[in-house]
Write a protein that binds this DNA or RNA. Structure first.
Length: 726
RNA sequence: GCUGCUGUAGCUCAGUCGGUAGAGUGCGUCCUUGGUAAGGACGAGGUCGUGGGUUCAAGUCCCACCAGCAGCUCCA
């Protein structure tokens, strides 16, 4: 058999050779470092005979060594097996579910009565260490479906049996891996032997469900990670620590940026003065930019009639994640429930009589209710009653309000594009388990705008909005991002509008992104229900990715709301809508910025830009003069009034992350200046007040970013990615 | 929403076997008036998340609820 190596050279090997044999022929060290092999596009076991894997001649082979990023995924998957083996030794009778790799490690789901806690980790890790020390090989073997089922039954692995019968129903032959006494249904690939694991650690334990469905059996998920080198693992653990140090919930509290109060409610952010300052600066910044780009500011109320959202589609499509409607009539909620019971057919005659009596008791005039009529007619009657009542929804999105603004006057093609912008606060009843500081809240303000354009303006306007997003991200120092073209899932029925409209919208979007020169990937099933989106995925200072800004193309709402404009041909035409929010939501964006900057905002965004530190109490008057001059120049400056020495005041200002300190004593006063201290550089010595102001203005007005504390951690990506197999 | 863990001073946390609550920091007052990361003394601050229960006695044990955290699921 012939093997072609990545450098193009072709060599001959005896039949039955494995990648490991090839490696050995090159050198013993290479063989030692070889973890897996890549044949064509597929990662496979290093010890499998290569002819089993492909018909190609010569066989294209790349050895995967501990240096290759793909190797980590293989290692971690094997480590998941090692962990499962250890758990089975300690907890006999444990059921195995799935054990895939994740971005930074792996997990295995166990079906086990005894709860595992972090206190069990040392025991499990010690057992894993034994397995690693023994260094037994991972052996692959194949069985037919029937044999596989029999084996899983013999091993008393119910979940594996179920998976063989359902999830893997279309596989005729299934692979298993044996490692000592441990046998697991597994697609592989695996490292040659357990001795390759040089560093591993259990990270956490959490609940999960069989196949991710909360209707299914609850499982215990054990997370861990593994590396070829202890140093790499330490770097990873440091990174996790760094992320914890930057947690915006902790920093937000520590620096008084925002608060969330039980008394106000879950997921409802309170912007404290300092956090509000940051938000205000961002809002002012973007407002100016919008003015320059021809947007018109608008305001709309926080509630709207339910019918509005029925027309837009928000109400029926996302009812569960909205706050319950506000009913003007006491019987409103009752009738609403009644309706839904008729709709899902769970209503009995007696219930209906009870509902009617209760509604009448609450003062609803339903005397003409057609008890004997069809479900449709009874629904129609109740719907009619509801429409005569007040029913409001806390707005889940701003678009319907802006649509009404568009409709508030007749539009000519000469008026278009119409660009309506608003920092619009919307409310979404996120599941309680989803709430997360400022990153996931129930009341959020989008830096929203809707553009109403003619079809032939779409290209240009969309390009301009992409440009706007790029500009604002650059201004806050976020320059590492990619764009995701989020398309509909063709299998799903949760979208509104015809497939033709969707195809055209997705095609247009793709065209614009192609021309924009932006780095973009396509992703099915991520679209909004009314249209495809271009989502900006932004990488922060320590390598985490966040979905922030979004630009969405929408042919559907104009259709639903029958939007029109008069064209040059004096006929009516339908405009196209572009939804866009460069920041996404102010809450999420500021939350992310807190973590990105580790709360040390650049000068232009810092809530407190300068702190004036008097050397002694006699300096108070001069401190006030300096403060007045700073305020006059538009700076946010405070005076430290503590009766403490300057060392203490400096320490406090450093810990409060104030970008600049002005230390003033008699010498500075006599020379009409300050001793400037840079939070990062330290003492800059004496400057006249004018030159200090000039320096600070330059940094502020240039929106200079110089305070991002970058972590030296390089994100590890090595997961097999595909968790669908087995 | 589900599973597990947690809830003590403004903040970070200690509190043993059930016996009327403690530190550091911050805050206040006073002393100190200093030149680039912590000067000193004194003082105020708590219905121990909420509501029940067990007990002579509950921060501590039990139950329910609320909230937070991790994960799952979800995210217009």
């Amino acid at each position: 058999m012939n093997i072609q190596l990545p450098d193009g050279s072709v060599k001959e090997f005896p039949a039955g050779s494995s990648a490991l044999d090839v490696a050995r022929s090159i050198g013993e060290r290479l063989a030692n470092a070889t973890v897996a092999a890549q044949v064509g596009e597929t990662i496979v076991d290093a010890m499998r005979p290569l002819e089993e894997l492909t018909d190609a001649d010569p066989i294209p082979l790349k050895l995967i060594t501990t240096k290759d990023p793909e190797a980590l995924g293989v290692l971690r998957h094997s480590c998941a097996h090692i962990m499962a083996r250890a758990v089975m030794r300690i907890f006999p009778g444990v059921g195995l579910a799935f054990g895939p790799t994740t971005g930074n490690g792996y997990y295995y789901d166990f079906d086990l009565e005894t709860p595992i806690s972090e206190e069990d980790f040392p025991r499990i890790e010690a057992e894993m260490q034994e397995i690693v020390k023994a260094g037994e090989p991972f052996e692959r073997f194949h069985l037919s479906r029937a044999e596989a089922l029999k084996l899983a039954q013999d091993l008393d692995q119910e979940l594996k049996c179920e998976h063989i019968e359902t999830g893997l129903a279309d596989h005729d032959e299934l692979s298993f891996y044996r490692q000592g006494e441990f046998v697991d249904l597994c697609r592989g690939p695996h490292i040659p032997d357990a001795g390759k694991v040089k560093a591993f650690k259990l990270l956490s334990v959490a609940g999960s469900y069989w196949k991710g469905d909360s209707a299914n059996k609850g499982l215990q998920r054990l997370y861990g990670t593994a590396f070829f080198d202890k140093k790499d693992m330490q770097a990873y653990l440091d990174q996790v620590e760094e992320a914890k140090r930057r947690d915006h919930r902790v920093l937000g509290k520590q620096h008084n940026l925002f608060a969330i109060s039980n008394d106000v409610g879950q997921g409802l952010a309170l912007w404290l003065p300092k956090g509000a300052t940051v938000r205000n600066l961002l809002e002012d910044f973007i407002k100016q930019e919008l003015l320059r780009r021809g947007y018109n500011p608008v305001y709309s109320p926080h509630v709207g009639r339910v019918e509005l959202y029925e027309t837009s589609g928000h109400f029926p499509y996302y009812r569960e994640s909205q706050f319950a409607p506000l009913f003007g009539h006491p019987a409103g909620a009752l009738v609403d429930h009644w309706k839904s019971r008729i709709e899902d057919g769970s209503i009995k005659e007696q219930h209906e009589a009870d509902f009617l009596a209760a509604a009448v008791d609450l003062g609803a005039d339903l005397s003409a209710y057609p008890k004997a009529a069809s479900a449709e007619d009874r629904m129609a009657f109740l719907r009619k009653w509801e429409r005569q009542q007040e029913r409001y929804l806390l707005k889940p999105m701003n678009c319907p309000h802006h649509v009404q603004m568009y409709k508030a006057q007749p539009r000519s093609y000469r008026d278009l594009p119409v660009r309506l912008a608003e920092f619009g606060t919307v409310y979404r009843h996120e599941q309680s388990g989803e709430l997360n500081g400022m990153l996931r809240v129930r009341g959020l303000t989008q830096d929203d705008a809707h553009l109403f354009v003619t079809p032939d303006q779409v290209q240009h306007e969309f390009t301009d909005t992409l440009d706007l997003v790029k500009f604002v991200l650059k201004s806050v120092g976020l320059e590492d991002y990619r764009v995701q073209l989020s398309k509909r899932d063709p299998q799903s029925d949760k979208y509104v509008g015809s497939p033709e409209l969707w195809d055209s919208a997705e095609g247009t979007l793709r065209g614009v992104l192609d021309q924009s020169g932006l780095n973009f990937t396509e992703c099915e099933g991520e679209a909004a229900f009314y249209g495809p989106k271009a989502d900006f995925m932004v990488r922060d200072a320590i390598g985490r990715e966040w979905q922030l800004g979004t630009v969405q193309l929408d042919y559907n709402l104009p259709e639903r709301f029958k939007l029109e404009y008069v064209g040059a041909d004096n006929a009516t035409h339908r405009p196209v809508m572009i939804h866009r929010a460069p920041f996404g939501s102010m809450e999420r964006f500021v939350g992310m910025l807190i973590e990105h900057f580790a709360a040390a905002f650049p000068l232009w965004l810092a809530p407190e830009q300068v702190r004036i530190l008097g050397l002694n109490d006699d300096m108070f008057g001069y401190c006030q003069q300096i403060q007045a001059a700073l305020q006059q120049a538009g700076f946010r400056a405070t005076i430290d009034h503590q009766s403490a020495n300057v060392k203490k005041k400096i320490r406090d200002a450093q810990l409060d992350l104030v970008p600049y300190m002005m230390v003033v004593g008699p010498k500075d006063r006599d020379q009409g200046g300050v001793s400037l201290r840079d939070r990062l550089e330290g003492d800059l010595g004496f400057l006249t007040l004018d030159s200090a102001l000039t320096k600070l203005k330059e940094e502020r007005d240039g929106r200079v970013i110089r305070q991002v504390v970058k972590s030296n951690f390089q994100g590890f990506q090595g997961g097999s990615g595909d968790e669908e197999g087995y």
